[in-house]
Each structure stands twice: as structure tokens, then as C-alpha cells.
Computed example of a mutant assay.
Amino acid sequence: MKVYHASNTIIKRPDTLHSRVALDFGQGFYVTVLREQAIKYGERFKLRKQQAFLNVYELSDGWQAKNIKKFTAYDAEWLDFITANRRQRSVVSYDCVEGGIANDRIFRTIDLFLSQDISRDEALKRLRFEEPNHQICFLKQALIDAFLSFIDAEEI
């Protein structure tokens, strides 16, 4: 299956080390099956007067047989996992995490919750109406090395 990663550089050999900490699913390499979502994310680099590239990879079969956590909704478990990662608190260790991304609109709810401006219940009520999008975060380099192959990159 094809997956996409937007960046200000071409990444032929993805790794988990160059990611920022305190991201949704932790420090890792993020991809999505949604091409348009990756392109939209890549536009952020262009707004900062940087080059933007859509890196395309082949994700081979078998990766989901590993220690994977999959979130299918913006629910209490997802909220707890996201907020723990953003606060850099300890979470259950996985090789890879798949689920919805905290995009701009969703991040506003997360931000209000993290700053204690809204309660957990209020955050969950707001998230209930959001349609999950998609991201896969590879947290272990061995998983990237075994299942992710660079195909091409195109300038956005």
C-alpha cells in the first residue's frame, strides 16, 4: 500500500530519530494513506518559505502483525494517549500507532483540555462529532526498515 509523508526535504531513509518529541503518538516517523492530507500538511512548509516535498513509500504487508495500537475513533482512550504524549508522560510502548491526527480544529479542543480551560467530558463531547482522518506513526526503527520502502518524492 502507498503511504505519504510531507517534509521540507526528500527522505529516502526514514528514521525515528529526526521527529520532534511531544507529538500525537510520540516521537517517530509519521505517514498517511491520505495523499491529500499529506499535501495539505506540506503546504505549511511553503508558508514558511521552505521547499515542500511529498515523499511516497510502499508499506509492505505484515506490518500490522507487530505490536500495533490502532485507534478507530476520537474517544477517551485516544484523548488520554494523545495528551500523555503531548505532555511527555509515559505511555504503553508500541512498535507503531495508527489512528486519527489532531489536525488544527481537533488540536484546538486538545489545547483547551491541556490548559484546563475545558473538562475531559467537554473535550470528549466536542471530539465525538469529528470525522477521524489518518496517520501511522512508526515508533521503532526495525519496523521502518522491514516494511517501509521509498518510492519517489515530488515537490508540492
Rank of each mutant, 00 (worst) to 15 (best):
residue 2 K to L: 15
residue 3 V to T: 10
residue 4 Y to C: 11
residue 5 H to Y: 07
residue 5 H to E: 09
residue 5 H to I: 06
residue 6 A to H: 09
residue 6 A to C: 10
residue 6 A to L: 07
residue 7 S to M: 08
residue 8 N to S: 13
residue 8 N to M: 06
residue 9 T to I: 12
residue 9 T to C: 11
residue 10 I to E: 00
residue 11 I to G: 08
residue 12 K to C: 08
residue 12 K to T: 12
residue 14 P to D: 04
residue 15 D to H: 07
residue 15 D to M: 04
residue 16 T to Y: 03
residue 20 R to L: 14
residue 20 R to W: 05
residue 20 R to A: 13
residue 22 A to L: 03
residue 23 L to Q: 11
residue 24 D to I: 04
residue 26 G to Q: 01
residue 27 Q to N: 09
residue 29 F to N: 07
residue 31 V to I: 13
residue 31 V to A: 06
residue 32 T to M: 08
residue 33 V to E: 12
residue 33 V to R: 11
residue 34 L to R: 10
residue 36 E to T: 10
residue 36 E to H: 10
residue 36 E to S: 12
residue 38 A to C: 10
residue 38 A to P: 10
residue 40 K to H: 10
residue 42 G to V: 02
residue 43 E to D: 05
residue 43 E to C: 06
residue 43 E to V: 09
residue 43 E to N: 06
residue 46 K to N: 06
residue 46 K to I: 15
residue 48 R to D: 12
residue 49 K to Q: 10
residue 51 Q to S: 15
residue 51 Q to G: 12
residue 51 Q to L: 14
residue 51 Q to A: 14
residue 52 A to K: 04
residue 52 A to M: 09
residue 52 A to F: 02
residue 52 A to E: 00
residue 53 F to E: 04
residue 54 L to P: 01
residue 54 L to F: 06
residue 56 V to T: 15
residue 57 Y to K: 09
residue 58 E to V: 11
residue 58 E to K: 13
residue 60 S to K: 14
residue 61 D to G: 03
residue 61 D to S: 10
residue 61 D to E: 14
residue 62 G to I: 06
residue 67 N to K: 13
residue 67 N to R: 10
residue 69 K to L: 15
residue 70 K to M: 13
residue 70 K to E: 14
residue 70 K to R: 13
residue 71 F to V: 08
residue 72 T to Q: 05
residue 72 T to C: 05
residue 72 T to K: 11
residue 74 Y to E: 02
residue 75 D to I: 05
residue 76 A to R: 12
residue 77 E to Y: 03
residue 78 W to K: 03
residue 79 L to R: 08
residue 80 D to Q: 11
residue 81 F to C: 01
residue 82 I to G: 00
residue 85 N to P: 04
residue 86 R to N: 02
residue 88 Q to W: 01
residue 88 Q to V: 09
residue 89 R to Q: 15
residue 92 V to P: 01
residue 95 D to I: 06
residue 95 D to E: 14
residue 100 G to T: 03
residue 100 G to L: 03
residue 101 I to R: 09
residue 102 A to L: 04
residue 104 D to H: 11
residue 105 R to Q: 12
residue 105 R to N: 12
residue 105 R to D: 11
residue 106 I to H: 00
residue 106 I to L: 05
residue 107 F to Y: 13
residue 107 F to Q: 01
residue 107 F to P: 00
residue 108 R to F: 07
residue 109 T to K: 01
residue 109 T to W: 01
residue 110 I to T: 03
residue 116 Q to V: 07
residue 117 D to Y: 11
residue 119 S to F: 04
residue 120 R to I: 04
residue 122 E to V: 14
residue 123 A to T: 06
residue 123 A to P: 14
residue 124 L to A: 03
residue 125 K to Q: 12
residue 126 R to S: 06
residue 126 R to F: 05
residue 128 R to Y: 11
residue 129 F to Y: 13
residue 130 E to C: 14
residue 130 E to H: 14
residue 132 P to S: 06
residue 133 N to F: 09
residue 134 H to W: 13
residue 134 H to E: 09
residue 137 C to V: 15
residue 137 C to L: 08
residue 138 F to W: 03
residue 138 F to Y: 05
residue 139 L to H: 03
residue 141 Q to C: 05
residue 145 D to E: 15
residue 145 D to V: 02
residue 147 F to T: 06
residue 148 L to N: 07
residue 148 L to E: 04
residue 149 S to V: 13
residue 150 F to E: 01
residue 152 D to K: 13
residue 153 A to N: 01
residue 155 E to C: 07
residue 155 E to G: 00
residue 156 I to W: 00
residue 156 I to D: 00
